[in-house]
Amino acid sequence: MAVLGLYNYFIFAVLLMIGLYCILARTNIIKSLIGLTIFQGAVFLLYISTDKIDGGTAPIIQEGVENQIFANPLPQVLILTAIVVGISTTALALAVTVRIKEAYGTIEEDKIQEMDREL
């Protein structure tokens, strides 16, 4: 059981690796950005994994029910914020990508680098 209790962190690490690899190894801008969303998604998983408590439930207090155990509300609040920050970054990056495509005619970073070097 001890190992299963750490499975979330293990998956977090693996997702982070896949995300970072995707960002670093791919020169296609859209692909890198998808990698970036995986990278951020992994961090959401890390935070939310800390909120779970055995026998707990979502932190919504019901009247008349005694001795309830609630999950930790704080990581949830933080990740709500982080998700919105993530989509904002993605939207902005995609807008830049569209403009790059219009200006260069490609979204492959290596080709763009070549084109800029010729100038």
Binding site: L36, Q40, A93, I100
Partner: peptide, 15 residues
Amino acid sequence: RALISTYRYIVMGTV
């Protein structure tokens, strides 16, 4: 080139 610089900054900055 401001666009591609912005893109690189976005990726590095977000990481």
